[in-house]
Computed example of a mutant assay.
Amino acid sequence: MPATSTTRQSVPGVVPQRVGPGRGEAAARCLGRDGAVVLTGYEPDADSLVVAAATVLGDRLRQLFPQRLRRSHDGRPVPLHADGFDLVVEIAGVPHRRRDPDEDHVLVQCVRGAASGGESFVADAYRFVDECEAADPELWEFLTRTDVDLYGAWAGLRGLPAEPRVGRHVEYTRTGRRLVRRTDGAAPLHRDPQAEYVQAMLERLKSAVAETEQGLERFRLAEGEILVLDNYRCWHGRDAHTGERAVRILTLRTSDAR
């Protein structure tokens, strides 16, 4: 069983800058600098997400995935995570990819704000990993050099391919972009002789991320505002809330994606 690190890391928090309408270049600069930006002045509708994606990412856009409207009543907290899922369905006998493990950007629009709570938070996963190299070398070694089944914990879910999706938490694209994954679906590979070690390290990562989450600065999205995230670089989540809350989510791939 791996020993637990006693070295506390700093908090790699990100509070996205707000950018008004008609300032696509400024929003793109903020996204490139911080990994996240909040766009203001949009109507809370599905078309706004597509327009926002084109405004910030321009001709780098390659593939948009179906939007997801998420409604919650007295919602539980959503821990830090990166989007991405391996989901393929058949429509009229033709396979269609509904989600992709390598979605490199995500847009989250507030459609209806909660009566209380529901604040968002963002962490710079690059900083988390870089600081982990000194604070917890064993965890860093695991994240950068150990293969896991990225969705093995969700095996049997309808639409999830039967073949294991094998990868590491930290990888690089052909263009040299680093991606840092964070999913509750990760599991040891089938019959991995190090399965016990891998499971212990997954729990250690979960604890380290939960500790990081506690120190992150919170911010609230107003209705219509859109949080744009570099999904390879930043993890995001939200606090518990009371009352009704709704967000619309768009994930996509650009020319820089894996």
Rank of each mutant, 00 (worst) to 15 (best):
L157V: 13
L157F: 13
R158H: 07
R158I: 12
G159K: 00
G159A: 03
G159C: 00
G159R: 00
L160P: 06
L160H: 03
L160W: 02
P161A: 03
P161K: 02
P161F: 02
A162M: 09
A162G: 12
A162P: 06
A162F: 05
A162Q: 06
E163W: 00
E163F: 01
E163G: 02
P164H: 00
P164I: 05
R165Y: 13
R165C: 12
R165L: 12
R165P: 05
R165T: 14
V166I: 14
V166Y: 02
G167A: 03
G167D: 04
G167E: 05
R168D: 00
R168L: 02
R168G: 02
H169R: 13
H169Y: 15
H169E: 14
H169N: 08
V170R: 11
V170Q: 10
V170D: 14
V170W: 11
V170T: 11
E171R: 15
E171S: 10
E171M: 09
E171F: 07
E171Q: 14
Y172I: 08
Y172K: 11
T173K: 06
T173W: 09
R174T: 06
R174E: 15
R174W: 07
R174Q: 10
R174M: 09
T175W: 13
T175S: 15
G176H: 00
R177W: 11
R178E: 06
R178L: 10
L179W: 13
L179P: 06
L179R: 15
L179G: 10
V180F: 02
V180K: 04
R181I: 07
R181T: 11
R182L: 15
R182A: 12
R182M: 12
R182K: 07
T183I: 07
T183W: 08
T183V: 09
D184W: 11
D184N: 10
D184H: 15
D184I: 09
D184E: 11
A186H: 01
A186V: 11
